[in-house]
Design a binder for these strands. Sequence first.
DNA 1: CCTTCCAATTGATGAAAGTCAAGTGTTGCT
DNA 2: AGCAACACTTGACTTTCATCAATTGGAAGG
Lengths: 251, 251
Amino acid sequence: MIEAIPADVRSLQLFEGVADETVCNLLRAGYDQSFPPLVTLIQEGAPADFLHVVVEGMVELFAGTKDREATMAVVRPISTFILAASVRDAPYLMSARTLQRSRILMIPSVNLRAAMATDNRFARNVVLELAGCYRSMVRHTKNLKLRNTRERIASYMLRQSRLLGNVPGFILPVEKRILASYMGMTPENLSRALKSLAEDGCKIDGQRVIITDRPKLEALAGLSPLLDGPDPEASQAGVSLPLPATDARIA
Amino acid sequence: MIEAIPADVRSLQLFEGVADETVCNLLRAGYDQSFPPLVTLIQEGAPADFLHVVVEGMVELFAGTKDREATMAVVRPISTFILAASVRDAPYLMSARTLQRSRILMIPSVNLRAAMATDNRFARNVVLELAGCYRSMVRHTKNLKLRNTRERIASYMLRQSRLLGNVPGFILPVEKRILASYMGMTPENLSRALKSLAEDGCKIDGQRVIITDRPKLEALAGLSPLLDGPDPEASQAGVSLPLPATDARIA
DNA sequence: CCTTCCAATTGATGAAAGTCAAGTGTTGCT
DNA sequence: AGCAACACTTGACTTTCATCAATTGGAAGG
């Protein structure tokens, strides 16, 4: 059971404008646990008994078998994940594991559905959250279908930059192998493509990324700006690659 | 304005258990129009002023520019589409065009949001619908990332068969070029792969498909059955390839 | 009935991405 | 400090898939 409501949990979009009582009831029914890195929190196919909230740390959502596995998203505080399975009382479509030591809030799906029934504002917040998740996933799929390897990387870099306020440089928020899997390519290919991007306006040194020629990089990423365009929902969607921490910005 | 409520619209999951008054208000505010084939109903990037419901016909959701375009889904009666954009009042992420002569109900997003605010049951139905859409899109993405061309085709065939009650034969519900785009491959490649599948338990003759060796085909499709597994939400998700019409079954 | 259009097929070729293998570098642990 | 583990890189090679071009076939319309 959860003792105190973390202030940042209360400020989740999901709880915005929702009666304190509703929130308290939800949290009282839930659990607040810390996990070491690389712990599997959720197994694809299991019944969705809990909605999860990442309060601290970092969680990877992935799918597939051991020999073929794909990163679907990386969730960072404060965000929920697997909301859809919870509300539908359906089996998880993705597995989840901690990438770092993480603090996770687990709210029973039963209580979640009950709260939706008694609190209309909460129900509407769930609608907005889910719509955001859906749109993030649509973007991801479009990216996979409409862009090739180099274009996906270019657009990812531009997106990260934009989310930090169009900074020219930043630090990659996750290991490259995870980034590669997320973007649907092998680590080897990511490595090669990253090197080749130096000629197209994006230099990489280890985890450090510097956009040296934005127009050129944008031309490479191609397609409409819509694909990753002004993106109010992604920050709370719970299914996009993480916003880099503010300290990811490079001076 | 909509004169009479079509019975099958009233029976939409979205309206299940919802007060007649709510439904009437929604439909009264909406429009009921018929369109010839190949009419663009929605342009990617436009503001989402209306929720759309396909009452008759068939609608393709797609994305991308003219020279690079990907089919994201095909919507068949009775299903809604672009619900997520409507509830978020956000720009459409996909375009839509009719594939056949189609009858479309258009409900102003404003009224949709109002109905969610006044009718809790309706809000919860929207939650379920959106969660279904999201899960369909997750499945689609997993398919793209975890399976190669032949595996995607094999699993698609098995899925269609299962949705019809595990029939051995059926008719493809859409043109092959659309199927190819949906599955993320070129028509040429689909054609070649289809031919090669004859040796793996799936014969194709024009639009006719016959599964001759289910175990072998399942082995080829590989991966967990979960990926396309028992799939209660897809039929109403509005973002999956169509359920073949019941007459698609081959004796 | 014939023509026209376009989806579908087929073959030849090329480009993109995956695989395999070896090596480098960094991190963390003893 | 030294070792081990592992992420990352690099190169050579293979496979898969896309592209281009030509042809076939079937359906709609004059």
